[in-house]
Amino acid sequence: MMRLRRDPRLERSVHLLPSSGARPRYDLTQRSGRPRRDPRQEAASQAVRLAPRLRIDRTQHVFLSASAAQAAPIPESKPAVVRVEDAALRVLVITDPGKGPLTPMDRQLLASARIAAGAAGGVVLAVDREVDDAGSAGADRIVILPESAHPADRFETALALRTAIPLAHMMLPETPAGGDLGRRLAARFGWALFSGVEQIGARGLVRPVRGRKVDQEQAECPEILTLAPDMVPLRSDAPREGRIVSLDLPQAKRAVERVRPARGSLPLADSDFVVSAGNGIRDFELFRNVAAALGGTPGASRVVCDSGDMPRAAQVGASGTVLAADCYLALGIAGAPQHLQGIAGCRHVIAVNTDLHAAMVERAELAIVADAQPVMEALLRLAQEKQP
């Protein structure tokens, strides 16, 4: 391959300024015209998941120049909403049961459906609750499903939905609920199923097989596919219409008994509330009683696990368990860097430490600058008073 050879002296002479001095002067503010990359902008466009650990999809190659990014005007008005006809609808997305706004998995499903439908195609979102930002996430139509968590009820609802809106493709999450529904539908109609998709784009559909040693590719989109969590980056396309469609769907017939796990029995990675002990804890029997009374899963710092006061499975941090809990109570933990990395995905952090300038105190939303021993005794006494 013949490649042009650069002449640095010739390139530098272009910027030479006329000067009567002994030393030459160059105007280096004028760039050579070569495109310059912005690694931060590239990484932001490839981000799939932010917490608890950042995940970037490196299969999406985006090369942006700094000059082009600066020259592009920032639109002051909102982009026009894209509207499609009913005949252009192509993909039906069925989300898992939930509450509140769209989950990251729901948004990844819509992003994948937008790729499968194309610019001229439409996407129908089937969700069991009202959501406000489905149009901006890529949904052209929205169908509100009856609220039900029973697999048989969801299957009957999906059958009625498929009869009312016969689209070419159906997309579900590769989760216990979504995977079960997708396989039921594939077995009922004899449809092709491509499960556990991790990439969707120019190569078609890609999923790992044989213990992730081999990638299996499929060029055409099947009738049903399930998407693996945290694998497809979100899209920033123009907002869609997101119009709600009213359908007569069967109501739930079966009740689901929800059994709450025993307090503090969940593992660290799945727990919403973690009570963790650090080097400032002396009475570990009291610590375990406090964690049990508060209903939290006991954790510990690396120093405590190294000393044998807590099991190694309870270690929190980059070298232990990375948390994504709603609340993290740190008792006597100064806050080493690897420990702070492990709690980066926690929503709320409460710290108890004698050092006002400890890293954990700076990280916490609520801090108690005191010895952890009397604080634990007070917490245990109050928790016992609140118990019936």
Rank of each mutant, 00 (worst) to 15 (best):
L382A: 13
L89F: 09
P52H: 08
G182S: 11
G308T: 13
T157K: 15
P222C: 14
L172V: 04
L331M: 11
L266D: 01
A336V: 15
L268G: 07
Q216M: 15
V84F: 12
I224L: 11
D230H: 14
T354L: 03
A44T: 01
R6G: 08
G295F: 06
A336T: 14
Q341H: 05
S307Q: 08
L161V: 04
K99D: 11
V352N: 02
A359F: 13
R25N: 09
P208T: 15
R254L: 14
L247C: 05
F287H: 00
H61L: 04
K99R: 06
A120E: 11
V124Y: 03
V91Y: 02
E76H: 06
D57Y: 03
A255F: 05
L249A: 12
T163W: 03
D237F: 06
A158W: 09
A238R: 07
G122R: 04
V131C: 10
D309P: 00
K386S: 14
T226C: 05
M171P: 00
R162Q: 02
R210Y: 12
A344L: 06
A22C: 14
V48H: 10
S307E: 08
Q315R: 06
E217P: 00
P166H: 09
E220F: 02
L340A: 13
Q218G: 05
A255Y: 06
R31K: 13
D326I: 02
R240Q: 08
R114G: 00
C327M: 12
A72G: 07
A88C: 03
A87L: 11
Q108A: 03
A383V: 08
D128R: 00
A66R: 10
T59R: 00
A139M: 11
R37H: 10
G299V: 13
A113E: 01
G342I: 00
P298S: 15
V82T: 06
S236Y: 13
A186L: 06
E11P: 00
A88F: 02
S276V: 12
E385T: 10
R55G: 08
E285A: 05
P151I: 03
P39R: 05
